[in-house]
């Protein structure tokens, strides 16, 4: 009941509240980094890590300054604003994953 009221209040002030919980730009990452961003077998987790660290890694991958098998090819597809949003999104998730 209380959560319903909260949802109502949030939705009233912020019509895209639901969308903000799941930024679309981050969805592509979940196909490899675990459905909750917590990692999958050999692929490292992203959730709960400092945003600055994640964003720096993405920029380094894009600039070919960080070794990797695939992330350079991936990181070069995203804008600077998207990298910032991605880093903030995963940093805000609980480290073990949320879903």
């Amino acid at each position: 009941m209380r959560r319903a009221a909260l949802g109502l209040a949030l939705a009233l002030t912020l019509p895209t509240a639901a969308a903000a919980q799941a930024p679309l730009v981050a969805q592509g990452c979940l196909g490899c980094h675990g459905a909750s961003g917590a990692g999958s077998a050999a692929i490292p987790g992203l959730s709960g890590r400092p945003a600055a660290e994640l964003a720096a890694a993405m920029r380094a991958f894009a600039a070919n300054e960080r070794p990797g098998t695939i992330m350079g090819r991936i990181a070069r597809g995203y804008t600077e604003a998207e990298i910032t949003a991605l880093a903030a999104h995963f940093a805000a998730l609980p480290a073990g994953g949320s879903r």
């Binding site: 979940l30 490899c32 999958s40 077998a41 050999a42 692929i43 098998t69």
Partner: peptide, 22 residues
């Protein structure tokens, strides 16, 4: 590179199927 990508492929399969049916 080839060895790592074979292992990452397995991780991809686990991740994407969890993101669909999990």
């Amino acid at each position: 590179q080839r060895r790592a990508e074979a292992a990452y492929a397995d991780a991809w399969y686990a991740s994407i199927t969890a993101d669909a049916w999990g």
